[in-house]
Amino acid sequence: MSRMRTALPNTAVNRVSAALILPAAIVMGAVVIYPILTTIGLSLTDAPLISLSPPSFAGLSNYAEWLSNPDFWRSLWITLIYTFGVTIGSYAIGLFTALLLNLDFPGRAILRGLVLLPWAIPEVAAVMTWNWMLDYQFGIVNSLLGSQVGWVTDSAMALWTVTIVTIWKQFPLATVVLLAGLQAIPRELYEAANVDGASRLQQFVHVTLPGLKPVNSVLVMMLILYTFKRISIIYLLTGGGPAKATEILPVITYLEAFKYFRLGSASAVGILALGFTLVITLVYSRVFLREEA
């Protein structure tokens, strides 16, 4: 690029730059911007999923209905518990396994492959297997624990269960990213800490954690966003139940659109969920990324 700058005037460079990003911009416009705008448009109508007549304009009534509906706020609360539970759990287990896999020991390569397995297994197959393992009557989990727990059928347990299953599915992502972060920390820092007589814990706190900051900011954001929009694990395990105990916002959106066929109403929930995601992202960026900068 620097060679190009010397050869071309600024306006030409700008044109080349614009031409290079144009394909990506078109794709982004088609698959991100257009659907969002369409969804916003639909959320202002009473559109059913299917109708031979055009939908009528409903203004902000879909939003007003949802914002005054206690089920929506309950669902948002459940979504936040699920999102932060999964994010914290995935990060903690990911960090632990990354630290373990960063050590030099025989069989490390095999273990690295094994840790990635939950991430690699197709989600539906994995969830169906969990469903059997957690079965109240015949599941291996109750059998091993000698317990009679309705892991997915008891409303007090279901949210914890889906959180744990999602952590199991998602922690390898954290492991991979954190392992890359750990390997980027210069060995010399640990050697210097050793010379200064720092303990293992002190090295972890003063060398490892600060060294992981660059990857942390991206990883945590990814974990939050992946979890906030994640529907398949909950839908397959509990369908949002029992008694709405695991009904996160994406489940409501899905039910409204594809079970009750209210596209306008579903779009409004989807846009509200998008709004909350943006708020979380902005707050996170302000607090953590600025601190890092």
Partner: peptide, 10 residues
């Protein structure tokens, strides 16, 4: 949803 609470013993 209603009966789920009954099956859950709640």
């Amino acid at each position: 949803d209603g009966i789920a609470s009954v099956w859950g013993g709640r």
